[in-house]
């Protein structure tokens, strides 16, 4: 522990990031520029999320890291180890036990409480970016609340695919003001953005932090005749039988056999421990062997 300052970043940097976080919380959905630091991992691996986590962690915290809902993927494991080593905090895989959860691409199925913080890793924070390449122009559009262009994207979706085909990074309007990219979470998770916990978004390469305070109104954009729908695979989890969770689809053999399973591994294993069994699942005792 003597090799690193607590949570890797120096105190001045953490203060700078906390100021950005506080500003972001004060203006929900607004992208606050911050002086993103080099982190010991490549851009795209969660450098923004790691910096935000480092700034909010305290020695008493319990950290959970998920990647696409899973606790045991490379990205999640390495970030969890990083903070174990540099901050010495407790880590967990259980959503209910964590006080800080860093996530990539998912919101946990378990509802978060008011004493929990959810930190997102964001690749491209600007929802208008692919339609308007100029940063000067997009900032102006945000400041003047000119969001017609966002609907042009949805219009294009419907005209080409017959439906709003945007399935992830689905744009939302926060507290009736800023249009925000909720990071690449599936649109299934969009309704969960209105939650009791604090949500912080960090984009390291793009040097932006934004936030959603607890119980903030978050509305997914749509058309009157094509309302927003939180979609998921029309299936139940094959392992735990859950019908209400977001599913991953896995091809398991060369004959096109497939398995649907919860993308949230903690949710799935918790349910299996409670005795729920899906169509292709087996009781958890045998799995452990």
């Amino acid at each position: 522990m003597s090799d690193y300052n607590f949570a890797y970043l120096d105190e001045q940097t953490k203060r700078m990031i906390r100021r950005a976080i506080l500003k972001g919380l004060a203006i929900p959905g607004y992208q606050v520029p911050f002086a993103s630091r080099e982190m010991p991992m490549p851009y795209g691996w969660g450098t923004g999320g790691v910096q935000v986590s480092a700034a909010v962690l305290t020695p008493e915290d319990t950290l959970k890291v998920i990647d696409q809902g899973a606790d045991d993927t490379t990205n999640a494991v390495s970030i969890r180890r990083f903070f174990e080593k540099t901050a010495g905090v407790q880590v967990t895989e259980a959503t209910t036990d964590a006080s800080v959860i860093q996530t990539r691409h998912r919101i946990p199925e378990q509802d978060l409480r008011a004493d929990q913080i959810l930190v997102y890793q964001v690749p491209i924070p600007e929802p208008l970016r692919f339609l308007e390449p100029s940063e000067v122009e997009t900032r102006k559009m945000h400041s003047l609340e000119e969001y017609g262009l966002m609907h042009v994207k949805l219009y294009e979706d419907i005209s080409q695919h017959g439906d709003i085909a945007t399935a992830y990074a689905y744009p939302v309007k926060v507290e009736g003001r800023y249009v925000m990219d909720p990071s690449p979470i599936p649109k299934f998770d969009n309704p969960k953005l209105e939650m009791a916990g604090i949500q912080l978004f960090g984009a390291g390469r793009e040097q932006r932090i934004y936030a959603i305070p607890p119980y903030t109104q978050v509305v997914s954009l749509d058309f009157d005749d094509y309302p927003f729908q939180a979609s998921k695979a029309d299936h139940a989890c094959d392992l735990c039988g859950a019908k209400d969770s977001y599913l991953d689809e896995l091809i398991v053999d060369d004959q096109g056999g497939r398995v649907f399973m919860c993308s949230d591994t903690d949710y799935c294993s918790t349910r299996r421990a409670q005795g729920h069994v899906g169509a292709q699942g087996s009781p958890i005792q045998e799995d452990a062997a």
Binding site: E146, G148, L149, H151, V152, Y155, I158, D222, F223, D224, D225, Y226
Partner: peptide, 12 residues
């Protein structure tokens, strides 16, 4: 449609 959507047309 862009100008229509810019003045809050929301019916596809």
């Amino acid at each position: 449609g862009e100008r229509l959507m810019a003045v809050n047309a929301r019916h596809y």
